[in-house]
Design a protein around this nucleic acid. Sequence first.
DNA 1: AGTGACGGCGAACATGCGTTCGGAGGGGCC
DNA 2: GGCCCCTCCGAACGCATGTTCGCCGTCACT
Lengths: 213, 213
Amino acid sequence: MNKDVSGKQAQILEFLREFIEEKDYPPSIRDIQEGCAISSTSVVDYNLRKLEDKGLIRRDREVSRGIEILGAHGRRPRIVEVPMLGTIAAGQPIPVPTSDRFGNDSDETVAVTEDMVRGKSNVFALRVKGTSMIEDLIDDGDIVFLEPAASATNGDRVAVWLKDRGEVTLKRYYHEGTRVRLQPANSTMEPIYTAPENVEIQGKFISSLRPSE
Amino acid sequence: MNKDVSGKQAQILEFLREFIEEKDYPPSIRDIQEGCAISSTSVVDYNLRKLEDKGLIRRDREVSRGIEILGAHGRRPRIVEVPMLGTIAAGQPIPVPTSDRFGNDSDETVAVTEDMVRGKSNVFALRVKGTSMIEDLIDDGDIVFLEPAASATNGDRVAVWLKDRGEVTLKRYYHEGTRVRLQPANSTMEPIYTAPENVEIQGKFISSLRPSE
DNA sequence: AGTGACGGCGAACATGCGTTCGGAGGGGCC
DNA sequence: GGCCCCTCCGAACGCATGTTCGCCGTCACT
């Protein structure tokens, strides 16, 4: 079978992409017919079957507009909207992310492709203020994605709540005997030493993103 | 008018999101009816009109499944597929991105939200090999997005083709009198000095992305 | 009680839309 | 020519689906 689509089939495929991009729902067979100047719906059907055979689209039979583009150029990467809960590393407390997501609609969110938060489900985002993690390549203004966590292993980058100071900060976490060392990734800054009871881990670092201004 | 949807309308909206997320095309009114355990199609229609009045969805009348979710939670951020043309900073030449995009379908691409390449149209991506730009927060393994360019102003981060070496590298560009200085952002590395005729600018840095492994 | 807005019901209607079918050119092959 | 395979036509068929319409119960207000 001719694997590389050509002519009419390529045209239909292209039309599919444009239509979906524009309208957010797939075209009907007759939409395709008009859009590609094809004389009969059966020709469209015929070529759609071909495309389906070649694995380029998937059709839900008996369902209006039940066409879905497959393959690298059709499969839309999943987008996740991550709630942006505030700013970190400069004093302000952040609210603990509630598992109750309902009613959050008015909150600011960042939309990212799902590979930024791979696998995780309750991810939240914080905007970084300051350069204390610069050597971990996290700059002022970057966005970090965290997953809720209550504990960490040494070396993890975590958002911690310092009870005595009433602030939240992003640091590397080291439990050293009877104390906890919160290590900035910035050689001009000193680590924070404190008692384990004074720290409350809020989230674990997943990934960071530098918004292109 | 009651702006905050509740009960049945919220349920329908939620069903819409889930259905589209799963199937990639909108549900029919009867799909909604079943999915939300509603007794009549007219009730669905009634509530859809309400939702439309409130500006939460858009309907294409007389069109099957012509429902589109609006608002922050419905509008999918645009995704752009950027061609990944190769690796940069360790010797291998990269092909010049051709303006002829046709037939590129088999090439590897990265899908990112459009804000990573804001405004630009012919962006391409390269995977960074090495740490020569580490102080610009570009690490080994990062992906950089570049726009085609033939010239640059001092301080720009550019991908340049070094004719005598036959390689491409990512550096900061400084034109200094009769020579060009290509400055790594890594204090352990020395700049490259060369003649202007020897360098050919291939692209200008737009943004970088650290894939979460 | 009367009234009117609101949300819901169920049936019928009119179209949208996928599918099917007989048929017709146009190669490639014997 | 005769025979297959691919592609395309046009029309008809029939289920899918959006829409309309009359009617009902509830609630607030008068």
